[in-house]
Design a protein around this nucleic acid. Structure first.
Lengths: 138, 138
DNA sequence: CTAGAGTCTGACACCCGTGTCAGAGTCAAC
DNA sequence: GTTGACTCTGACACGGGTGTCAGACTCTAG
């Protein structure tokens, strides 16, 4: 199939598909006369795997290493890629740290929201009487 | 105090402090003869507030709106900043969505890690240098 | 043959806080 | 007077997947 069809079947834009190829994630054949990319049926699944991993926060370089190890089944890894687990765990830690950071950010915002002056608070439960009119600095 | 001192006291680089000013977050006086920025003692706290909000995922435009409403105390909001709570809640929702997205990413990675082949030490061709037999850490 | 859809490559923009550099001016200390 | 630390402005780069455009070529249906 050509790039337009693959785009429709995967939801990835043609732009993205060309980008994935340039990053070494896809290797479509080329039509000799036209130069058009010719994708195989397998590539539909490959692109979906790529999208999944991108959504997981991995970049194309990491995915390029990971992709050859993925097999047909649900997120399963091919044998012989055991060393990859180290990389995956590193990614996992990275994402985990990001989650922790954002969770802390939520706390900061919640503190601010809770401390909002009573007249502006959405939730009446947050209302407090000690509205101290401190001068607003310029 | 001048920019170097403020940088040391806040941990923000001079580059960042100049950036914050350009974004309207700081308004230091200028020495008439030298043109050097002159910061007030208050600015130390202001910069710390800025850093906190940036760490919370807010951008400088949002912070510019938010900053005049913050008072001296811990994350408290000044009165008379109606409508701000709505903005804060929107930011909260945005971060919350990001957390959910990353959590889903963690699931994807965990699925891959769990599906990894059980230490294929049998096949030397698959051995990798960085393949440490470390257990999956969570 | 022709119109229109499909595809090609290459390039620029975006986000947005931060790092870094260059060239020049300022200030305090010796 | 000289040296060295400090500061100034402006500009470029980064990450990194994606949007979008321009100009040109290819394919297919009528």
């Amino acid at each position: 199939m050509r790039i337009g069809a693959l785009s429709r079947r995967t939801g990835a834009s043609e732009r993205s598909l060309r980008h994935y190829e340039k990053q070494g994630l896809l290797h479509p054949q080329r039509d000799e006369s036209s130069g058009y990319r010719e994708y195989r049926e397998d590539d539909v699944r490959t692109v979906r795997n790529i999208r999944t991993l991108l959504a997981a926060g991995l970049n194309t370089a990491v995915i390029a290493d990971l992709l050859p190890c993925m097999v047909e089944d649900e997120g399963e890894l091919a044998p012989g890629c055991a060393g990859l687990v180290t990389d995956l765990n590193r990614e996992r830690d990275r994402i985990s740290a990001a989650v922790a950071e954002l969770a802390a950010s939520l706390d900061v915002l919640d503190t601010l929201i809770t401390a909002a002056p009573p007249e502006t608070a959405d939730d009446p439960a947050c209302a407090e009487d000690d509205a101290e009119p401190s001068p607003v600095h310029s």
